[in-house]
Simulated assay, not measured.
Amino acid sequence: MKLGYHLGYWGSGPTPGALEAVLEAERLGFDSVWSAEAYGSDAFTPLAWAGASTRRVKLGTNIVQMSARTPTATAMTALTLDHLSGGRFVLGLGASGPQVVEGWYGQPYPKPLARTREYVEIIRQVLAREAPVTLDGQFYQLPLNGGAGLGKPLKPTVHPLRADLPIYLAAEGPKNVALSAEICDGWLPLFFSPKADAFYRNALAEGFARPGARRKPEDFEVPASVPVIVHDDVEEAAGWIKPALALYIGGMGAKAVNFHHDVFARLGYEEVADKVQELYLAGRKDEAVAAIPTSLVEDTSLVGPAAKIREELAAWEDTVVTTLLLRGDAGSLTKVAEALS
């Protein structure tokens, strides 16, 4: 199993020590470095910044929100970064949720799977550069239907470095996970647990079995963001993770449409997830954090003494996950890499 480093997205400003952590990740032999975006920092710029100081690690977005850019704009940035990095770029895409898509980007959210399919198809055409890009889709039309009526099919002036630049899809629900296996080169899970491995294997198998599926299981990548904290006190380590879990379970989505909540409900924590969401949306955030049991943290993270983490790592190695994406500063990366070795 490979290791990657996840920069995440910024808080109120740039993350202190991020470049030092990127350099340490490359020195330690990590396979990849990843960035993210929500409604603050963007995903592409930190990777360009990190790529200028590194030579080997892959550079991936986890994730670029599709509603933030047209498919061709995303493809242009991807091919640009791939050239500048010498073929190290990985494009991770995601639909996000209705609160961000409609509240921040002002784009419609319905039918995200069909929209994703069209989005990826356009990017593939740009990267292939075999002909002018055209699509008469439900969500995207190139050239545009209507308007001035003067649209012209175009292909990129820049020759992409790789026509097969890898595209990964972030997904939590079974239909979207299956779509990743059908049309993409990898899947980016969030809040993965070895206990849910069979559920996700079945979803991926459905996608691999579809006509025209792009990959087979043996050449499909699954980089999973997994909190890893090496600490003698399990409860204290779990306590550092619980506030982020409360945010995602309780506040990252509307009450009726929160995909993170649903992940934990499927994992057997439906009552906990409901309670956390109720408390969080009522503004009782401290109580929401306190309502998260340590067992939930341990099901989706690796926390505790190094010996405990090494023992539990075996369960992760038996899953579909191919890369563990770690977070933290340069010092913590070194400590975690030693614990996982």
Results as ranks from 00 to 15, higher is better:
Gly4Tyr: 00
Leu23Glu: 14
Glu24Val: 05
Gly29Arg: 12
Ser32Gly: 06
Val33Arg: 00
Ala36Leu: 10
Asp42Ser: 13
Asp42Lys: 05
Ala43Leu: 09
Ala43Trp: 00
Phe44Ile: 14
Ala52Gln: 13
Lys58Cys: 12
Thr61Cys: 14
Thr70Val: 09
Thr70Gln: 14
Thr70Asp: 09
Thr70Lys: 10
Ala78Met: 11
Ala78Cys: 11
Ala78His: 09
Thr80Phe: 10
Thr80Met: 13
Asp82Val: 09
His83Asn: 10
Arg88Pro: 02
Phe89Trp: 09
Leu91Gly: 01
Leu91Phe: 05
Leu91His: 04
Leu93Met: 13
Ala95Asn: 12
Gly97Thr: 11
Gln99Cys: 02
Val100Trp: 04
Val100Gly: 04
Val101Ile: 15
Glu102Val: 04
Pro112Gln: 09
Arg115Leu: 09
Glu118Lys: 11
Tyr119Ile: 09
Tyr119Ala: 11
Glu121Met: 08
Ile122Ala: 05
Val126Trp: 06
Ala131Cys: 05
Ala131Glu: 14
Val133Pro: 02
Val133Lys: 04
Thr134Glu: 15
Thr134His: 03
Leu135Tyr: 05
Gln138Gly: 06
Tyr140Phe: 15
Tyr140Ile: 06
Gln141Ala: 14
Gly146Glu: 08
Gly149Tyr: 06
Gly149Ser: 10
Lys152Arg: 14
Pro153Met: 05
Leu154Lys: 10
His159Leu: 12
His159Ser: 13
His159Val: 14
Arg162Pro: 06
Leu165Asp: 02
Tyr168Glu: 08
Leu169Met: 10
Leu169Ile: 13
Ala171Tyr: 01
Glu172Asp: 08
Gly173Phe: 08
Pro174Phe: 06
Pro174Trp: 07
Asn176Ile: 10
Ala178Gly: 15
Leu179Ala: 11
Leu179Cys: 09
Ser180Asp: 08
Glu182Asp: 11
Glu182Ile: 03
Gly186His: 01
Trp187Asp: 00
Trp187Phe: 12
Pro189Trp: 01
Pro194Asn: 12
Pro194Gln: 10
Lys195Glu: 14
Asp197His: 09
Ala198His: 08
Ala198Pro: 02
Asn202Cys: 06
Leu204His: 07
Glu206Phe: 06
Gly207Met: 05
Arg210Val: 06
Arg214Ala: 03
Lys216Arg: 15
Asp219His: 12
Phe220Ile: 11
Ala224Ser: 15
Val226His: 02
Pro227Met: 04
Val228Leu: 10
Val230Ala: 04
Val230Ile: 12
His231Gly: 07
Val234Gln: 08
Glu235Asn: 14
Ala237His: 03
Ala237Trp: 00
Ala237Thr: 02
Trp240Met: 15
Lys242Ile: 06
Leu245Tyr: 15
Ala246Trp: 00
Leu247Glu: 12
Leu247Ser: 11
Ile249Ser: 05
Ile249Val: 15
Asn258Arg: 08
Asn258Ser: 10
Asn258His: 08
Asn258Trp: 04
Phe259Gln: 13
Leu267Arg: 11
Tyr269Leu: 07
Val272Pro: 00
Ala273Trp: 00
Asp274Arg: 15
Gln277Trp: 00
Leu279Val: 07
Tyr280Gln: 06
Tyr280Ala: 14
Ala282Tyr: 03
Leu296Asp: 00
Ser301Leu: 02
Leu302Tyr: 03
Pro305Gly: 06
Glu311Lys: 15
Leu313Ser: 03
Asp318Thr: 08
Thr319Pro: 03
Val320Gly: 01
Leu326Ala: 07
Gly328Ile: 06
Thr334Gly: 15
Lys335Asp: 03
Ala337Trp: 00
Glu338His: 08
